[in-house]
């Protein structure tokens, strides 16, 4: 699971009002290089929740993103784009769990696939 996917997933348990962001528990992390697409990154920048991305990437062992939401102008910097690209699309959570921020319920992640299935009493 890439952190772009993490940035849009939310816990949908009945009664939970704010299931985002899911906390990451990482057991195995892998990196897979993909080609950078600056146009796509600029488009995503506007749609992302920045702090959850910073926090998630730090949990995954990458702490090079600025803490506060950077100004749009950073998107002109190749160095920034490279880091942003790496955090968003190249780091994968292979084994571990996603934890609902309200209830603490764990959604396991195995072979890179989060299991977001709800139990009967959670629907």
């Amino acid at each position: 699971m890439k952190l772009l996917t993490h940035n849009m997933l939310s816990s949908n348990i009945k009664g939970v009002t704010n299931g985002f962001p899911l906390k990451i528990e990482a057991e195995k992390i892998i990196e897979r290089p993909v080609e950078i697409n600056p146009v796509f990154l600029k488009n995503m920048f506007a749609k992302l929740e920045w702090k959850p991305l910073v926090e998630a990437s730090r949990t995954m062992g990458f702490s090079e993103l600025p803490e506060d939401v950077p100004d749009m102008s950073v998107l002109d910097s190749d160095e920034f784009l490279q880091k942003f690209h790496h955090a968003l699309l190249e780091i994968h959570l292979e084994e571990g769990a996603l934890v609902c921020p309200e209830t603490g319920r764990k959604f396991p992640v195995q072979k890179g696939i989060p299991n977001m299935m709800l139990h009967e009493d959670e629907v």
């Binding site: 699971m1 940035n7 849009m8 997933l9 939310s10 749609k47």
Partner: peptide, 15 residues
């Protein structure tokens, strides 16, 4: 991939 019942899919934003 995400394992989930589509009817219970939880997401945020307009990504």
């Amino acid at each position: 991939f995400v394992q989930c019942d589509v009817r219970n899919f939880g997401w945020r934003g307009q990504i």
